Simulated assay, not measured.
Amino acid sequence: MRLIVFSLIALVCVMPVWAGERADRSGTPDPAGLPVVVRAVEVGNLPPHGSLEFQWRGYPFRVVRRTGQDLERLRRSPATEAGSEGGAPHAIMTSLGCHECIKPDGYAQSLHRSPDPEYFVMLSVGPHYGCYISYFPPGDDNRWPNGERVELGQGWTGGFYDPCHDIRYDLAGRPFPNSLSGRNLFVPRYRITGAGLLIMGE
């Protein structure tokens, strides 16, 4: 009986998680002493303006597929760069043991804030007290799941919204003028392969 119990415990501990994404764990420790967790998420089949949320080390991340028109809008966006990747995400990423993710490669400072302009990847936790960030695509009716309409103002062309602080962000995660935010939405370090896989945690 004891052998059966131990076998079940071992099975639960090593069972990989499959929920529309593939995970690969290696035993190599990072600076925080946590195992490195590499996650591959299939994004190649996302439709234009499609969005997929996934978990990495217990936190929600989101990938959005942008169109050429979206990228053109970003060039005319009233939103502006709002400083560093600082704030709450630093603490989150440190707790994840991902020190190298705190300051991603230079693409986070580019106009579209992504290595592949077509895809935008972000932490779905705002830089202000950890509020969940919602996505409202271009052309959407902008409603909560209960049917209540979200008033996002004139000229809204899609992006992200922090309902706790009434902060609007464009499709590159930059806050609109006159908002309470002094920070961009957090962009982690990642890469997208030619096979349409988003790789996190390398």
Rank of each mutant, 00 (worst) to 15 (best):
K103D: 14
G97D: 09
S95W: 00
Y119N: 04
V125R: 02
S124D: 03
E148T: 11
H112L: 10
P104W: 04
H99W: 08
G139R: 00
V121F: 04
L96G: 10
H99C: 07
H90W: 07
G126C: 02
H128Y: 13
H90A: 13
G106L: 12
S110M: 06
L111C: 11
S124C: 12
I133C: 00
F136M: 10
P104T: 01
S95F: 02
A108E: 14
V125I: 13
E118N: 02
Y135N: 10
Y129N: 15
N142Y: 10
T94V: 10
P127E: 10
Y129T: 14
Y135L: 01
D141Y: 06
Y129M: 15
S114V: 01
G97I: 10
G126D: 03
C101M: 15
P115G: 06
L152I: 01
P115C: 04
I102D: 00
C101V: 02
I102S: 00
H90I: 10
Y129G: 10
K103P: 14
Y129L: 12
N142S: 15
A108V: 14
D105Y: 10
D105F: 05
L111G: 07
L111H: 07
A108K: 12
L152V: 04
P117G: 09
P137W: 02
C98F: 11
L96Q: 05
P145A: 12
R113Q: 00
M122E: 02
S124R: 14
P138A: 13
R149K: 14
C131M: 03
Q154W: 14
E118S: 08
D116T: 11
Q154S: 15
V121L: 06
E148Q: 01
M93F: 12
E118V: 08
P115Q: 05
L111Y: 07
L123S: 03
G153F: 08
P138L: 13
F120A: 05
G126S: 04
Y135P: 00
L123I: 02
C101L: 09
